[in-house]
Simulated assay, not measured.
Amino acid sequence: MLKVASLGSGSKGNSTLIATEEATIMVDCGFTLKETLKRLERLNVVPSALDAILITHEHQDHISGVGPLSRKFDIPVWSTRGSLLSGKCGKLSNYSVIEGFNRFIIGDIDVLPISVPHDAREPCQYLFNADDKKLAVLTDLGSYTPEIIELLKSCDGLLLECNHDEDMLWNGPYPYSLKQRVGGPLGHMSNSQAIKLLQSIIDDNLKLLIASHISEQNNCPDLVQRSVATAIDWPLGDVIIAEQDKGFDWLAVS
């Protein structure tokens, strides 16, 4: 059974767990070592159970805890060369270099890195395939490409960025330069962008939808849940919210 959980999602830190009976993968670790261990315990996961840490990109809210966790428990890190060359993880003795759209295997999980538009050195997101189920983790991108749309079709589960409401962002307190970055093609996905993406890929296979990386300043979980559910004609409660403080507990991709 393929399943997913989150330690937390948002600008203060991000980390997602993907697991089967044979393997457990952490995608990003943007929390301190102490906080990461605390959040892992909440999900009943011991660090020694982690088979790999996958990096999406080198921004602090995704990478700050990767080096300390990897070094302390000798967990292999998988990353693009660009993210590694940022030096944000410190010295790593156990790592593998990956490239966008080149598959690799961890345990019984097939992993496909997806190159995405984002303001980092060599950012990627991931598509996981195990037990005949597909789960995509797609956060931290300012826009989406035809390749991304094709890969997301027929997914059984999707963790999708709904970072900001465009009106709240542009009328909010951020400096104009930051508004341009967040709302630009290399920034973060808005609610409306996420909805358009969903409407272009949704089919009967998609059973699990999780809205993630929701801005505390420029968005509202209730707004995300309501607007997404209405747009794709889903029951309100079926749109799961990844929270900054609690993430979400284990969910099966079925």
Rank of each mutant, 00 (worst) to 15 (best):
I25T: 01
L84C: 02
C124F: 04
G10N: 06
N129M: 12
S96W: 09
I63N: 06
I63T: 05
I114N: 06
L17E: 10
T16G: 00
I55M: 15
S11V: 14
Y95F: 15
K91S: 14
L69T: 00
D51V: 01
G67A: 13
I63E: 07
Q60I: 15
S115H: 03
H118S: 12
I25G: 07
S48F: 12
R71T: 11
L112I: 01
A23E: 10
S83P: 04
L92F: 04
F73L: 11
D61W: 12
H57M: 03
V77Y: 05
L112K: 01
A49Q: 15
L2H: 04
K91H: 14
E22T: 08
C29D: 02
L43T: 02
G107Y: 10
V46A: 15
G90K: 04
Y95D: 09
S64Q: 13
L37W: 02
H59F: 08
Q125F: 00
G82F: 03
S83W: 08
Q60M: 13
D28I: 00
I109R: 01
A49E: 13
G82I: 01
S11P: 05
V27C: 03
R39Q: 10
D61C: 11
G67Y: 10
E21K: 14
E99S: 10
K88H: 07
G107K: 06
Q60N: 14
G8F: 12
A52P: 02
I105G: 12
L50T: 11
L2P: 03
S79L: 12
D74C: 11
I55R: 02
Y95E: 11
G67Q: 14
L85I: 09
L43F: 09
S96F: 13
